[in-house]
């Protein structure tokens, strides 16, 4: 059963905050959605290792340096930057 406690736990994992009313609503919705997802419960099959998509060593990026992106571009879309770095509120 998808209860409020589980919703609150998932909200924490998702870094989303809900008001009490919102959490109640989202729990109701999640219950509905999860009931649809429960269709998978009666499926049984064993998984075989799927190696089909694997690539060889010769197909991957060679160890050759490329130019990095100018710092101004890297920081361009940040709402807040300070001293050439991303500004992060204090981590507790």
């Amino acid at each position: 059963m998808f209860d409020i406690k589980l919703s609150a736990h998932l909200a924490e994992l998702s870094k989303l905050s809900f008001t009490e009313t919102e959490l109640y609503e989202v729990t109701k919705e999640m219950n509905e959605i999860v009931s649809l997802m429960d269709a998978v419960s009666d499926f049984t099959a064993t998984e075989a290792l799927n190696t089909a998509a694997a690539v060889g060593l010769d197909q991957i990026r060679a160890d050759v340096k490329c130019d990095s992106t100018p710092r101004s571009e890297i920081l361009k879309n940040a709402a807040k930057s300070e001293k050439n770095a991303f500004a992060v509120p204090k981590v507790v």
């Binding site: 060593l57 991957i60 990026r61 990095s68 920081l75």
Partner: peptide, 30 residues
Amino acid sequence: GCSADFGGEENTRVCPRCSGMPGSLPLFGR
């Protein structure tokens, strides 16, 4: 392909991939 050298001025060895910009994708190196 950014340099893996030690040090460097802040955020000068960075590209869309290693800074996880939307739309960028990782390219694993040999």
